[in-house]
């Protein structure tokens, strides 16, 4: 053993190197890495915080607009979110609480997105061939001339 002192030293040195590597690994691998797969889970929360959701859902609208919410719930558009036509919540109510008048999409193209006659849609779903349904040019806010969007049934 007396003549193997250098071996002991080199083995100790290797152990120190390995220990440093393992310690470095401990610092370098993020804590939430591998929690749900080969990625850093904390990144999900960080991205969520960076990107504030633009849409808030009908419940958020109801807090200030109870009458419109009641009308919507009573009508056939009860499953259509307010933000589909009125735009995202975040564009209406800013982060500092100030309110901006939203840009409402009243165009016939928005209505046609769901109600244009498409063979693949269920037969019971209200859908029309626009050119036959509308007397006159199909343009602008032509649908709203007859239908109330909150309760569109005539």
């Amino acid at each position: 053993m007396e003549h193997a002192r250098h071996v002991v030293r080199v083995v100790l040195l290797v152990m120190v190197v390995l220990a440093v590597a393992f310690l470095a690994r401990g610092f370098l691998v993020p804590r939430s890495y591998g929690m749900y797969g080969p990625y850093r889970y904390d990144n999900v929360r960080e991205q969520m915080n960076v990107r504030r959701p633009a849409h808030a859902g009908p419940a958020a609208c109801e807090q200030c607009h109870p009458d419109e919410a009641t009308a919507r719930k009573a009508g056939v558009h009860r499953n259509v979110s307010c933000e589909v036509c009125h735009g995202p919540f975040a564009a209406h109510v800013k982060e500092d609480g100030s309110v901006v008048t939203p840009t409402v999409d009243r165009s016939y193209t928005l209505c046609a997105r769901c109600h244009r006659k498409v063979d693949g849609r269920p037969a019971g779903f209200p859908q029309v061939v626009l050119e036959e349904h509308v007397s006159g040019p199909v343009e602008g806010k032509v649908c709203l001339g007859c239908h109330n969007p909150h309760s569109p049934k005539l």
Binding site: E2, H3, A4, R5, H6, V7, R9, V10, L13
Partner: peptide, 19 residues
């Protein structure tokens, strides 16, 4: 580089050879 040990006697070299 020598890690502070200067032993290169026959016994130490024998150990080295094994290593």
């Amino acid at each position: 580089l020598a890690l502070g040990t200067y032993d290169i006697g026959p016994e130490a070299l024998e150990v080295d050879h094994g290593a």
